[in-house]
Design a protein around this nucleic acid. Structure first.
Lengths: 353, 353
DNA sequence: GTTGTCTTTTACATCGATGTAAAGACTGCG
DNA sequence: CGCAGTCTTTACATCGATGTAAAAGACAAC
C-alpha cells in the first residue's frame, strides 16, 4: 500500500524547473551558490507546485526534526499555561516547534516520556520534573538533550531554576513581618522517591528554614499536601486543614493556583482575606494580580525563564559535549493585598469574630 | 557531515538477533507472523540495545508521523489551557502526540500555519480559528486533515462547536431575567475579514438577538472590543467603557478570562458584584468557579469537546474522502453568584450609592 | 522419498531530502 | 585562443523503516 501522498516533491520541482533535485535542495538550504536565473526558475516552480519540503525526510537525513518537547505536570495549571506560551513563543523565534506532553496524569508517565523521548521525533526536551528519579538521568547519554526547569538537585543535566528555597524563606519572612505566626504550607502531591529533590521539596525546605530562623515551631498539622497543583487541588487541601480545625493565620501556597483555591475555600468558611488570614503564592500568573483579593506571590519573568531554557537547549543541541550548566533566574516577592497584615487568625473549629 | 546518530537501528538489532532487518520490522509492526523463538530473540536484542524506532524514518515511509497540531489563539488564556489539556489527553489515548501553535501573536500566523501545515510533520490539525479566511480553506485538498473547533460559518471542513449564538442569547435572557436592562458585550479583538464568521461574531449576534427579542436597544457604546482575550485584555476593555462613563447594569463577556478581568476592573472602580453589575462569561474554566465572586458562565464539557474533535480528525485521517461533518456539543448556563440580581447599575461617571 | 502447501525469512526497492564527489560551464588572464 | 581556477550542476549514495516478491524452510500426505 503506497501512501496517498500526492504532494509535490523536490523531484517534481526539479523537473518543472529543468534542473536536478540537488539544485532545488541548494536553493532551499543555501548550501551552495545557485545562479540567479536558475534560482528564480526553481522558486517559480516551487510556487507553482505549492511545494513544501517533507520534514520527515529532512529529519531522517539530517538527524534533526526541528521539534522540541515540553513536558509539564498538569497543563491545566495556570503556571503551565504561562510557561507553555512563553516556550512556544521562544521556540518559534528560534525556528522550532513545540510538542507538549503531560506527566502528572499517570504515575509512570514522566519516566516513560524521558526514556522514550527518542521515539518522539524530538531534538530536545524541556522538562518540569515532579518525581524524576535518578535512574532516568542515568542513561542520559542515549537521550536527546534535556533541560530541566524547576529545582532538581542533580548536576548532570542543564537546568534553569529560581532559588525556590530562598524564595519560600523570603515569603515566610514576609508573612512573619506582616504579623503572621502560624503559617500553613500548602503544596506537594504525595511523597515518594525523587519528590524531595524537586520544586516541592525546595519550597518546603525554605518554609521550614524561614520558621527556624525565627525560632518558631513547624507543627506537622500545618504542613499539608494537595491532591494536585490546581485551583481545585488547593481548595481541597485547604478544606482538609479547616476540617481538622487547625489554628493558623497565614498560608504559603506552593503555586498561585493552589493559593487561589485556598483563598476560595477560606472565604467560603467565612474567613476574611487578608484580615483573618494572609496568603502568599508562587509564580505570579496573570490571575494572581486580578484575583478578588490580589495575591502576594513570588514573581519571576516567565519569558526570560523560557528563553534561558531554550538557549541552553539549542546550544546543547549544537554541542552535546558541553558541561552541564545551571542558570539561576532572579525572583522577587510581589506584595499585594493578600498579605496586608496583621491577620486575626482563623481555624475551622472556631467561627470568626 | 554524517549526523552523530549513534543510536541502534533495526539493522543492529537484526544483526544481534541473527535475523534480517525485515524480521525485526515484522516483530515491531506485527505485519507478518514471526515464530515464537525468533520473536523472543529479536525482542531480547531490542532490549539489550535499548532500541527505539526512528519515527522520522517510519514517518517518511508510511506518510504518517503520529503527530497532530493544535493551534489556539493565545495559550495564556484559561480556556486554551483547559483545551490543551483535554486534547493532549485525548490524543494520548489514541496514541498521538500534540504539537502546539499559537496564532494570535502575529497577524499572519494563522494563515501561515494552515497553509504551511504540511511542513510541520503533522498528520492532522485542530484549529481554533479567529480570523480564518476563506482563502485558506480553498486549498484544503493540499492540506492535512483539519478540524475546526469553535464556530465558523463554512461547510468544507469538519468542525466541533457549541451553538455560541444561542448560548449568548440564553445568557442575555438570563441577565434580563435577573433584572438587567443595559448589558455590555465584551469581546472581539479587532474587526477584519473572517472575524464575523468566527466565535466572536456568533457571540455578538446572539447578544444582539437576545436584546432584540426583548425589544431592547443595543447601543453601540455598550458593545466593546478587548485588545486580547485574556484577563488583562478584559480589564482593559472594561476600563475603556468605564472611562467613557457608559451606564450599564450587566456585562456579557465572551470568555471567562475576559469576564474575570472585567470583574477586577469593576471592583477597583468601586462596583459591587453582583449588587451593582451582573457578569456572565463563556467556557466555564476552572477559575470561574473559584473566583472571588463565582462567575456565571456558559459551560460545556471540554473533555467531550476534545474527544469529539479527535474522533473527527482520526476518522478523516483514515479516510480523506468522508463528507465534511459538523458536531454540535451541548452547553448549559451555569448560574453562579455573579448574576444574583437585580443589579443597581453602574457607570464610570457616577459613583455608586 | 517426493511433491505440494503453508509458513517464515530474505533481498531489494522505496519514501524525500541532502552530502559527496565528480563533471560541466564559465571567468579572466596570458 | 587556450588553460587554470572558480562557480554550478549533476549522478549517486545515504538516512531508517517497511512493503513486495521471491527464496528458503517446515510439515503433511501420498
Amino acid at each position: 500500500m503506497t501512501p496517498p501522498s500526492s504532494r509535490p516533491t523536490m523531484r517534481d520541482v526539479a523537473l518543472r524547473a529543468g534542473v536536478s533535485p540537488k539544485t532545488v535542495s541548494n536553493v532551499l538550504t543555501g548550501t551552495a551558490q545557485v545562479r540567479e536565473p536558475t534560482r528564480l526558475r526553481v522558486e517559480q516552480a516551487m510556487r507553482e507546485l505549492d511545494f513544501v519540503p517533507n520534514l520527515s525526510a529532512r529529519g531522517l537525513r539530517n538527524g534533526r526534526s526541528g521539534v522540541i518537547g515540553l513536558a509539564l505536570p498538569d497543563l491545566r495549571a495556570a503556571f503551565s499555561a504561562s510557561m507553555t506560551h512563553a516556550v512556544v513563543e521562544a521556540a518559534h523565534a528560534r525556528g522550532l516547534v513545540v510538542q507538549v506532553e503531560e506527566t502528572a496524569a499517570e504515575p509512570g508517565r514522566e519516566h516513560d516520556l524521558v526514556t522514550r523521548a527518542r521515539t518522539h521525533l524530538i531534538d530536545g526536551m524541556i522538562l518540569n520534573p515532579v518525581r524524576l528519579q535518578d535512574s532516568v538521568v542515568e542513561h542520559l547519554d542515549h537521550l536527546p538533550p534535556i533541560v530541566l526547569i524547576g529545582e532538581v538537585e542533580q548536576h548532570r543535566t542543564d537546568r534553569v531554576f529560581i532559588d525556590s528555597r530562598a524564595a519560600a524563606r523570603d515569603a515566610v519572612r514576609h508573612l512573619l513581618a506582616r504579623g503572621a505566626r502560624r503559617i500553613v504550607s500548602l503544596g506537594g502531591a504525595e511523597s515518594g522517591p525523587g519528590l524531595d529533590k524537586a520544586t516541592q521539596g525546595q519550597r518546603l525546605r525554605g518554609y521550614l528554614a524561614g520558621l527556624a530562623e525565627a525560632e518558631l515551631p513547624a507543627p506537622a498539622e500545618l504542613q499539608t499536601e494537595v491532591p494536585e497543583w490546581t485551583i481545585a487541588g488547593g481548595a481541597e487541601g485547604m478544606r482538609q486543614i479547616l476540617q481538622q480545625g487547625a489554628q493558623f493565620d497565614a498560608v504559603l501556597a506552593f503555586t498561585d493556583s493552589i493559593a487561589l483555591g485556598a483563598m476560595h475555600e477560606l472565604r467560603s468558611w467565612g474567613a476574611r482575606l487578608p484580615e483573618d488570614v494572609l496568603v502568599c503564592g508562587f509564580d505570579d500568573v496573570e490571575h494572581a494580580r486580578f484575583a478578588g483579593t490580589p495575591l502576594t506571590t513570588i514573581a519571576f519573568d516567565h519569558e526570560d525563564y523560557a528563553n534561558a531554557a531554550l538557549d541552553l537547549l539549542t546550544s546543547r543541541m549544537r554541542d552535546r559535549a558541553l558541561p552541564p550548566r545551571a542558570v539561576e533566574m532572579p525572583y522577587e516577592l510581589l506584595a499585594r493585598a493578600s498579605t496586608t497584615g496583621p491577620p486575626a487568625g482563623f481555624s475551622g473549629r472556631i467561627s470568626e469574630n
